[in-house]
Simulated scan of single mutants.
Amino acid sequence: MSEPVRNPSLFQCCAAATSSLAGVLRPRPIDQRFLRSLTDAGLPTPERTVRVRALAQVPRSVPTAAVVEGVFTPKRIDSSLTSFVVEHPEAAFVVDPSYCVDAEHRAIAQLPSLLRPAVRPPADTIPTVTALRAETDLPALDFALPTHAHWDHVCGLLDLPGLPVHLHSVEREWVTGKPVAPVGGVRDALLDRPVVEYDLDGPPVLTFARSRDLFGDGSVVLVDLAGHTPGSVGVLAHTARGWVLLAGDAAWHALQIEKVRQKAGFPGLFVDDDRELTFKTLHRLHLAQRVIRVVPTHDHAAAQHLVTARREAAEPLA
């Protein structure tokens, strides 16, 4: 049975409309004081390398100003529901299993009606399970690791029964701890499967305050990207071509990180759990991008870079 839906109030709808209009005319400026306060704790010292591949997905053209507040050039950018596979010598796992078969009825129907048109992907969007099967050289998956628990980052699990999920303890409490799921959160995908909780109990990495070394060898490190949801994380991976950060929805597109622009008020006010903290996380990503490649889950062009990179780096893992 589907979970009950939490619908936005009339006040929230009015606030989103007002915020969107204000953001068009006067987008929120960079917080220079906060930016100067950030320190770089440096990168881990990795003992191994991993492979990161972006699974096949179709793009969806969207107005730039709907993603990057107050930005109109280019007029449109490509978004997508990309999933990623990380191959470590000890395990292979899928990051953000995004889309399921028949998502319209199994996931999107659980969202508030106001949001459905804004988030509905193209009809030919590729389910994660289909994209996985197309990767003929892919090792068997050991687990899934969503960056957060919104529907478009976990509903692909519905087609992967029994696959264990590694989930930040803060995120699990956020999505399951109340009688009604938060806006955008879908619980069905987490039912009837092992869920391995973890905490970000490691030291600062780059500009991020907390971390977790997933394999204890510095090759895959989870970092704190809270704001979009309380337990949002990024997956920092050391590849043969350098460091890559899978940033989930801390930003929807690289332009947000480059310009430090928050999401437009609609749908941003509905999908960002804490807009203030989300904006601060953008500042952290803005500084970090100088030394690592940041890949937002919904940035189709950024994901395509990983497709090219993996073709050029086929050496054995070490």
Results as ranks from 00 to 15, higher is better:
Met1Glu: 11
Val5Pro: 01
Leu10Met: 13
Ala15Asn: 10
Leu21His: 07
Leu25Gly: 15
Pro27Asn: 11
Arg28Gly: 00
Leu35Ser: 03
Ser37Lys: 08
Thr39Leu: 10
Ala41Ser: 11
Arg53Asp: 00
Val67Met: 04
Val68Ser: 05
Val68Cys: 13
Phe72His: 13
Thr73Ala: 07
Ser79Asp: 01
Ser79Tyr: 01
Glu87Ala: 03
Asp96Ser: 14
Cys100Ile: 01
Ala107Tyr: 00
Gln110Pro: 01
Leu111Pro: 00
Pro112Gly: 01
Leu115His: 09
Ala118Ile: 13
Ala123Tyr: 03
Asp124Tyr: 05
Thr125Glu: 06
Asp137Pro: 06
Asp142Ile: 03
Pro146Ile: 02
His148Gln: 11
Trp151Asn: 09
Asp152Gln: 06
His153Ile: 05
His153Met: 14
Val154Lys: 05
Leu158Phe: 00
Val175Ser: 06
Ala181Gln: 04
Pro182Asp: 08
Pro182Asn: 07
Asp188His: 04
Arg193Tyr: 06
Val195Gly: 10
Asp199Leu: 07
Leu200Asp: 08
Leu206Met: 13
Arg210Thr: 04
Leu214Gly: 01
Phe215Pro: 01
Ser219Pro: 10
Gly234Leu: 10
Gly234Arg: 11
Ala237Phe: 08
Gly242Cys: 14
Trp243Gln: 08
Ala247Gly: 15
Asp249Cys: 13
Ala250Met: 14
Trp252Pro: 03
Glu258Arg: 15
Arg261Asn: 10
Arg261Asp: 09
Gly265Gln: 13
Gly268Met: 12
Gly268Glu: 08
Leu269Lys: 12
Leu269Tyr: 07
Phe270Ala: 06
Glu276Val: 15
His283Met: 08
Arg284Pro: 10
Val294Arg: 07
Ala302Tyr: 10
Ala302Cys: 13
Thr308Val: 05
Ala309Asp: 15
Ala313Gln: 09
